[in-house]
């Protein structure tokens, strides 16, 4: 259950944003991605999650190990909290949503429609989804947006428990979560988009 990136170049819209990235995420490890807005953290996470191919280099990871937590939570407003979570649980072949509801303090909200939740409550539901996937490697993109201090604590606890049971997490965030984590700053890997060697490649990106 180890995620390894070797000499990775990731691109957004055909333009390389980060290049020469190499790192390993081992079980039990939390890696915090740092970098200014627009530095390519989301692009890197999407590439690692397999949503887009890397421009160069390779990612090696065990199959079906990734749980991706994006900016959008993928919630359906007309479904209740429990229904939303139960859907993702059954997609991932797990059944029990109670531990996830308990951990993110959602038990009292379980029969509320997701559209009537506050932004922070929605986020908590989105994070609870990670627990029901049963996946080992969490790739999280700014998971604490719109969470209050208490909820950030709940989230940090969830990550701690997950890591203690052999999981791993790669988290792009701007705040200090109070976790024992290594910091991985992506700024030094910023790609030079004007490098002449790769301009032609961008043109036939759609056909490769």
């Amino acid at each position: 259950m180890e995620l390894t990136a070797r000499d990775l170049t990731v691109s957004r819209g055909g333009v390389p944003v980060l290049e020469g990235l190499s790192f390993t995420l081992k079980p039990g490890q939390v890696l915090v991605l740092r970098g200014p807005n627009g530095s390519g953290k989301t692009t890197l996470l999407r590439t690692l999650a397999g949503l887009q191919p890397p421009l160069a280099g390779e990612v090696s990871l065990p199959p079906e190990a990734i749980a991706y937590g994006a900016h959008a939570d993928g919630l359906k407003g007309t479904l209740t909290v429990a229904e939303n979570l139960a859907f993702w649980a059954s997609v991932h072949g797990t059944r029990d949503i109670e531990p996830a509801l308990t951990r993110f303090n959602l038990l009292g909200l379980r029969n509320r429609a997701a559209q009537s939740l506050s932004a922070g409550q929605k986020r908590r539901l989105g994070l609870a989804r990670l627990l029901v996937t049963g996946r080992a490697i969490w790739l999280l993109d700014e998971p604490t947006v719109s969470l209050d201090a208490a909820s950030v604590g709940l989230f940090a606890d969830a990550v701690r428990t997950h890591v203690a049971s052999g999981g791993a997490a790669l988290i792009a965030t701007h705040i200090d979560l109070g976790l024992e984590a290594e910091i991985f700053d992506v700024t030094p890997f910023k790609a030079d988009p004007d490098a002449p060697s790769r301009t032609p490649a961008a043109f036939d990106e759609a056909f490769t």
């Binding site: 999650a49 959008a72 993928g74």
Partner: peptide
């Protein structure tokens, strides 16, 4: 709708 609320990304990483 699934694209806009992010579900499609999550479905793409799901086991289906």
């Amino acid at each position: 709708l699934d694209f806009e609320d992010g579900s499609l990304d999550l479905l793409a990483t799901a086991p289906i």
